[in-house]
């Protein structure tokens, strides 16, 4: 009897967590759909002009901006994060793993506003003086985001390396391959699905990040055609303008959230499909 009660209780709590997702989705769509219907789906996602006070609601530059910044961030994150995971999995002496791993996890605990602040004070002026332009740019945002997704990328791809059966490695070494050849030709392909999942989850984090991006992206409404140009992402659009938005403007911000929600749902689904064990 008591067992049953606890079981039912846990079920209820678990469902209430999931219910939150549905509630959030419901509210975003309820507020956003009427506006998209009014403006037209195509005009909303494929027009480049955003001026809510004049009734223009085109979010294409922000969709492009979000994707551009995110993909670049994942490139940075992949290069740094995978190298780090490979080193930790195969080459690092035991004592250094004990120091490095907690430090990487600490990276995940730093508030995003701190990343943004360092970006504004150090990275943006550096980009401005080295490469020109305003400094607030696609490049600055993607470097900051690339660093922010490192803990996710490293932790998940490290697990993927550890999950490769030791037999693979031993067999390869026994055949005379070097450690690097073994890692690159045997372990890396075997851990592939885990690594892809790591990158996609990192991507999800990068798409959703707001505060740090607002601070270093410049938030201009231009279509970013160069890495040194300012950019506005979907998340920053919502956070920047929600303060004073009302009426259609507010609905348009909800609709922006809708687009973001769909992008993240797609990314997570891909991650799930990729990591599902093949049967």
């Amino acid at each position: 009897m008591r067992e049953k009660l606890i079981e039912k209780g846990l079920l209820l709590v678990a469902f209430s967590a999931v219910a939150t997702i549905f509630l959030i989705a419901f509210f975003i769509f309820r507020e956003g759909v009427p506006l998209v219907a009014k403006v037209g789906v195509w005009d909303f996602i494929a027009s480049t002009r955003w001026a809510p006070s004049k009734g223009q609601f085109g979010i294409l530059p922000m969709i492009v901006g979000s994707l551009e910044v995110t993909i670049l961030a994942v490139v940075f994150g992949a290069v740094l994060g995978l190298s780090c995971a490979m080193f930790l999995a195969e080459f690092a002496p035991r004592w250094s793993v004990r120091i490095l791993k907690p430090m990487i996890e600490l990276l995940a605990g730093i508030p995003s506003v701190v990343y943004g602040f360092i970006g504004v004070v150090v990275l943006v002026p550096w980009i401005r003086t080295t490469f020109g332009g305003p400094g607030f740019s696609v490049l600055a945002s993607s470097i900051i985001l690339g660093i922010m997704i490192l803990p996710t990328v490293i932790a998940i791809s490290l697990d993927a390396f550890h999950a490769v059966p030791p037999l693979y490695k031993e067999g390869s070494l026994a055949l005379g391959a070097t450690r690097w050849q073994t890692l690159y030709r045997v372990q890396l392909p075997a851990a592939r699905s885990g690594i892809i999942a790591a990158l996609i989850l990192g991507m999800g984090r990068a798409v959703g990040e707001t505060m740090a991006v607002i601070m270093v992206a410049g938030n201009a409404l231009t279509m970013p055609t160069s890495l040194l140009q300012p950019v506005r992402t979907l998340t920053s659009n919502i956070a920047l303008e929600m303060g004073y938005a009302s009426g259609d403007h507010q609905a348009a911000l909800f609709a922006t959230g809708m687009v973001l929600f769909v992008i993240i749902a797609v990314l997570n689904t891909i991650a799930l499909v990729v990591t599902r064990p093949r049967t």
């Binding site: 480049t48 530059p61 938030n219 201009a220």
Partner: peptide, 23 residues
């Protein structure tokens, strides 16, 4: 008149001032 699309956008007096102070 409309603002040019590549004009930077900040959401407080303070951050506008900080950018101008550093650039």
């Amino acid at each position: 008149a409309a603002f040019a699309p590549d004009v930077l956008v900040q959401n407080s007096n303070g951050s506008v001032r900080e950018i101008v102070a550093s650039d």
